[in-house]
Simulated scan of single mutants.
Amino acid sequence: MSQISNALEKVENSPAEVVAQYRDSLALVMPSHLQQRVGAWIRNTQGLLRRDPKLMEAAQNDVGQFIAVLMDAGRLGLEPGTEQYYLVPRWNKKKRCTEVTGVRGYQGEIELMYRAGAVSSVIVEVVYSKDHFQFRPGRDERPVHDIDWDAEDRGELRLAYAYAVMKDGATSKVVVLNKGHIAKARAKSDSANGKNPEFSPWNTDEEAMWLKTAAHRLTKWVPTSAEYLREQIRSKAVVDAEQRPEPLPANVPVPAPGTVDDDYDEGPIDAEFVED
Rank of each mutant, 00 (worst) to 15 (best):
V254A: 02
I42K: 00
P15W: 15
N178L: 15
N193S: 07
L87G: 07
E207Q: 13
Y22H: 09
Y163K: 09
I67V: 15
E111M: 00
Y163F: 10
A241F: 14
F135M: 09
G74R: 00
I269D: 08
V260C: 05
P80K: 13
P89M: 12
D261E: 07
A187Q: 08
V274K: 07
N196R: 13
V29P: 02
R43I: 05
P257S: 08
M30C: 01
A183I: 03
D261P: 15
Y106G: 01
P80R: 05
S2H: 01
Y264L: 01
P223C: 03
Y264S: 13
D72G: 11
D24E: 14
V174T: 11
Q134A: 10
E152N: 10
L248G: 12
T224E: 00
A162K: 11
D168E: 02
R186A: 08
T45L: 14
V175M: 03
A256P: 09
D276V: 14
E275D: 02
S189Q: 07
G155L: 11
E111N: 04
G47K: 12
A16S: 12
T45S: 11
P255S: 08
T82C: 02
N196Y: 07
Y114N: 00
R51D: 09
E156N: 09
N61S: 06
M1S: 03
I4T: 06
T259I: 15
V19G: 03
G102D: 14
Y163P: 15
V18A: 10
K167W: 01
S225A: 02
A16G: 05
L157S: 02
V119S: 00
T204M: 10
A162I: 09
V29Y: 06
Y106E: 04
R142V: 14
V11W: 08
V88C: 09
W210K: 02
R217N: 10
M209P: 02
A164H: 01
R104G: 01
G39V: 06
P89K: 08
Y85E: 06
L87V: 12
V69F: 04
F133R: 10
A192I: 01
S25T: 10
W149N: 11
N92H: 15
T204K: 09
V100P: 01
R142S: 14
E231G: 15
S189N: 13
V175Y: 03
F199V: 01
S200Q: 14
S172E: 13
I147P: 15
L28R: 06
N13I: 10
V175I: 14
F133D: 07
T171Y: 08
V18L: 02
L34G: 04
V239W: 11
Y128G: 08
Y114Q: 00
A271Y: 08
A151I: 12
S5A: 07
H33I: 00
A151G: 05
V88S: 08
P253D: 07
D131P: 02
A214H: 06
R186Q: 11
W221M: 15
V103T: 03
F133E: 10
